[in-house]
Write a protein that binds this DNA or RNA. Sequence first.
DNA 1: TTGAAAGCGCTAACAC
DNA 2: GTGTTAGCGCTTTCAA
Lengths: 335, 335
Amino acid sequence: MTNSRVAPPTLEEVAAAAGVSRSTASRVINGSPQVSPAVIEAVNDAITSLNYIPNRAARSLANRQTMAIALVVPEDTRRFFGDPYFAAIVDGISRSLDSTDYVLNLQLAGPSRKAIRYLTGGNVDGALVVSHHSGDNFLSTISSALPVVVNGRPLNLDEQDNYFVDVDNTSAAQLGTQHLISIGRTRIATIAGPSDMPAGVDRSLGWRNALAAAGQPTNRLAFGDFSLAGGAAAMRELLERWPDLDAVFVASDLMAMGAMSVLRQRGKGVPTDVAVVGFDDSPAAVNGDVKLTTVRQPATEMGEMMTRMLLQLLRGQQVEKRVIMDTSLVIRDSA
Amino acid sequence: MTNSRVAPPTLEEVAAAAGVSRSTASRVINGSPQVSPAVIEAVNDAITSLNYIPNRAARSLANRQTMAIALVVPEDTRRFFGDPYFAAIVDGISRSLDSTDYVLNLQLAGPSRKAIRYLTGGNVDGALVVSHHSGDNFLSTISSALPVVVNGRPLNLDEQDNYFVDVDNTSAAQLGTQHLISIGRTRIATIAGPSDMPAGVDRSLGWRNALAAAGQPTNRLAFGDFSLAGGAAAMRELLERWPDLDAVFVASDLMAMGAMSVLRQRGKGVPTDVAVVGFDDSPAAVNGDVKLTTVRQPATEMGEMMTRMLLQLLRGQQVEKRVIMDTSLVIRDSA
DNA sequence: TTGAAAGCGCTAACAC
DNA sequence: GTGTTAGCGCTTTCAA
């Protein structure tokens, strides 16, 4: 808390202490292969004894790398933090970055002018975009300026050629719905995500596909916004319109929790009266009264994968444009 | 997605286009008062037409400011993101920073060597620490190297002189408990936070104070970890040991939600059989089946205040060491 | 009010 | 293997 900040040691001083030139000192710091062992040791000793820490700004200026990557969240902050799915992704990202020299810059504001300026202004080396949304041409804009890896397939055609990691939401949803069919349910509804989000449309498509293949009706649908409250509202709507439903496939665990609380209020037993299948397999799935049967998507691993891809891109390596990760059905008590 | 990145314009070019020197161009960019209006306009025109964006690294190197502030989270990532209280704080921080030139660096790793090096290595101008925890002497260490504002009072004596913003947890908890007493409850338990967190100890103290003042017993206590699951476990423990309890003051809304789901499972009506008062007034409070009566703390405003204080500190202004914000009781349906 | 010159701390050719 | 020499793009005295 004092203001007695002393000037930190410079490379110059380290070099002097080690009896070499700045360039050589710089070489050992950057792990250049062609330095003699003796010198390496001398420099390292000097570094530790002087408690030297390289100046980022100087480094960036000289080699045109910021060693920073942006975590862009074009999503309402509260919603973002509230969703365990995002928590898991960020966890994966943060963990993966821990072993590198990169730092993470949080860009919580949406696709604002300021954010675009920041991202395209050379302030970060790359960006990770985490959201269900894919607003306007934001992605195309920033992608033309720096390497970007997105979570979730693009919705718009003009964002077609982004790097992204996702799951096959359609077949994953199909899988979940098939389970409902296989346990004998015949009036299967769905709580879908918003229709402006790929995860929303794809999952409801999967639900529809499964029902159609089984010759069951595909009209029992209501939309939620991936939030707890949204799931509850959608469930009320479904119950209102189709009081006879005996199962519901919900596009996220959080919404499923909301839906189940409504079912409970209405005196509907889960899974006896209404079977419920969620999506995510987030911690929320096992937090409630009745453990949720759900379609698992590997969120943490997706975060790790996004980071890995971006890191490779930054190294100039060739990277797969789209990576689709596996999902699986986790059967618990709700269906 | 292309690699055709063109070199961004430099101040040099802007100056040339405006027909002035670099120094003058720099002056208008930094809002120096002593530049002629005509020149200001010329430079600004050049800036917009060239789409000039200042290079952060060069700027930092020249004026020894990084224009970055760290958001330090010495907390498990999943837990952090799962708690609406933190979401609100971060929201406040992020919003406040939006109108400035500062960027936010996310430091999710705990008080590691690496984190300390990063923070004390001149990579950021200041730090905001957000967590219930106050591990070892982490704060003292970084506080001696840069301005730091913490959320929550320090637990350790050696961190006594940090800047922090908090609420008066003790009297806030007392307030919540008094409400329980005032509605006639006589067997009032508490689900406390961990005893290594100020928010944990202070709130349970408030509960105790209120009961003691009313001549009621203060033994019905169980600990939770501020998570949904932790709240549920604690509730089960309480019910096990004191099946006759008729109210419970819970140290966080999230734990209260967990507790209420257990009460529901056990067939206990809320508030008829057991009245519940939470803490936070997070969105979670109104998401469940029964709306939670809770002690409100202004989380978003606390985030804004933390940011404001840090910004002032960075400007070299005098700042109050400890800011205590107001709490209030929000009466809904659970008590 | 403006310009010239120096320098922030580091990396990267290029020589030796 | 190691040192020398130039910058990276900006701010900031100091003079004018």
